[in-house]
Structure formats: structure tokens, C-alpha cells
Nucleic acid binder design. Structure first.
Lengths: 144, 144
DNA sequence: TTAATTGTAACTAATATAGTTACAATTAGT
DNA sequence: ACTAATTGTAACTATATTAGTTACAATTAA
């Protein structure tokens, strides 16, 4: 995964979870992330396609979760944002005259898929509710 | 993982495994991968540091495995090549005035680490010997 | 009608990855 | 000692990916 999209998207989702149903604008989200509202809206576009977020346009518009936070897992966010495999590049340039090169991709692909499924299985264990509770807890600890 | 380095490194290691102890030059490896010998030597540099490959310079020089193929796992190759976490970007630009932003990285980091450990655990299950046997098998099936 | 907002296209900037060139150091064979 | 083949590495260029920006049409509440 080359980008910070997943982290940023989870950051967005965590804010929406902590705002519990109140609409949040892309400008407010961008403030916390310290980035551009357009970038936020692009990410939210993916989250909406996956049914995780709903938005309203116009004055007093904004974004909120489409489900309860305990119904959303890190895997849902991951799947909404990351289209490519963690591993797989097209990698089409290997030499077709070489018997090893001809077969390496299907063979490795199988093992890479198993590894990625293990990763995804682990992400599915954590809900957005858990994340938001941990954020609150973490902030409280620092205040002492 | 943003690069194809891991796939290419595993490709290299598979060739070395199938050559069983015979020295292979970076030029021969580059031929199979259809890339530049220097690129191959750079990757081999990492594999050597991790004790997976040994090389000889000079005429009749080349590279070979430092261990038996069944003693090397995909995780060994992965760890030799990939220095950064699958997920973690520095991501230092979030707004320190936001309580959520201040805490998101340690909280998510914990869950991301668990996921990455699951991925690595899966990679450790497969040895280079297995990969090379599967390559042979896959090529044989195609010849029928 | 106005102001605030999303959605999106088109673009630029920044960063990361891949590939290349060049050459010193090493070694086997002669 | 000389030659040819090889690794190791630095410095560089090219390509691809990601991040960020600008602009503006469409939508909606007041």
C-alpha cells in the first residue's frame, strides 16, 4: 500500500463516528487532517460507493455515517479505499522465454492472496466503535 | 507495499533455488526478469545483508543461496526487502489542535501492526523450496 | 437571492520507484 | 602481468504514483 489513503479515510470515519449522526463538512474534516477539502471529498466518494457514508449537498450540507459505528469494521474502510492487492503489481515485463518467469506470478499470487486474506481477516476484527472508544481513552490518559 | 521489489526478489530467490548451489550472475537473473543487472544487484544487496544469499566477485563470480531452500521462507525475503510497514506513512501533518488527530496514529498503529503480523505469519508458512516445486509443477502442467 | 455546501474535472506539484551509466575493485584463466 | 568477467555502488535520469490545488456547476436552507 503506497498511500496514506487508508489512514486518512479511517481518520475521517473516526471523526464521523465521534460526531454520532451530526453532519460534518469536508472543510471541518480537512481541518483535522490538515489537508484540502477536495481531497477529503474524493475519499468520501469511495466511502459512499461502499455504503459507509451519506452526504447532503447545499447549505447546511455535510457528511455522516450510513451505519452505526459498531457495524463498520476497518476491513470495510480498507475495501472501500484500496482497490489493488497489497502485493500485486502488473509485473508483466518478465521474460516469456524463461520457464520460471512464465510461472512465478500464478504461484506467488496464490501465497500472496493467502497472506492478504489473513491481513483482511485481522482488520475485520476491529470496529469503528472500538477505534473511537480507544481514541477517547487515549486522549483521557494524556490529560492526567 | 508500493513496489514490485518483493515479487522481483522472490523471483531472484526462486531462480537461485532451482539452480541449487550453482552460481548465477546478475546478468542471467536480469534476463529472466527482463530488467537491468544493476537493479538485480541492488536487491541482492538486501538479501545478502539478511544472510540469504552469498556472492563472489570477479571472473566466474555470481550469486547463490546462503542456505537450503527449505530453510528460507517468504517472510525472510519479505523482511529483507521491505523496510516500511505495509500501512504506516509518516502522516505527521495532521492538526495537533484536534484531539482526534492527536491520538489516531497510536490507536490505528496498534491495529495495523496486528494485521501486518497476521500477514507475516502467513508468509512464514511457505518455504522457497515449496515455491520452486510449485513452479516446476506449474510448468509441467502447461506442457501437456 | 444569497451563502454554504457537495461533486467532479482538469491541472500542477511532490514524492517514490524503476532504470541507466559509469567505474573502481575483485578474481580466474592465460 | 594482462585480460575478461564479474560484483558493488554512486550518481544520475526517466517514469509512475500520490498529493494537493483551482475552478466551477449543481444543490439546498434561510
Amino acid at each position: 500500500m503506497k498511500s496514506s489513503k487508508f489512514i486518512v479515510a479511517t481518520h475521517i470515519m473516526t471523526i464521523l463516528a465521534l460526531k454520532e449522526g451530526r453532519k460534518v463538512t469536508s472543510a471541518d474534516l480537512a481541518w483535522s487532517i490538515n489537508t484540502n477539502p477536495v481531497l477529503v471529498r474524493k475519499l468520501i466518494g469511495h466511502l459512499k460507493k461502499s455504503g459507509l457514508v451519506v452526504s447532503e449537498t447545499g447549505a447546511d450540507g455535510g457528511n455522516k455515517l450510513a451505519k452505526k459505528a459498531f457495524e463498520i469494521t476497518l476491513l470495510d474502510i480498507y475495501s472501500a479505499i484500496e482497490t489493488k492487492s497489497v502485493f500485486q503489481k502488473p509485473y508483466s515485463k518478465m521474460n516469456k522465454n524463461c520457464g520460471i518467469a512464465r510461472n512465478i506470478l500464478p504461484v506467488l499470487g496464490h501465497h500472496f492472496n493467502k497472506a492478504e486474506l489473513a491481513l483482511m481477516g485481522e482488520l475485520r476484527k476491529t470496529s469503528l466503535k472500538t477505534i473511537s472508544l480507544e481514541i477517547i481513552q487515549s486522549e483521557k490518559l494524556k490529560l492526567r
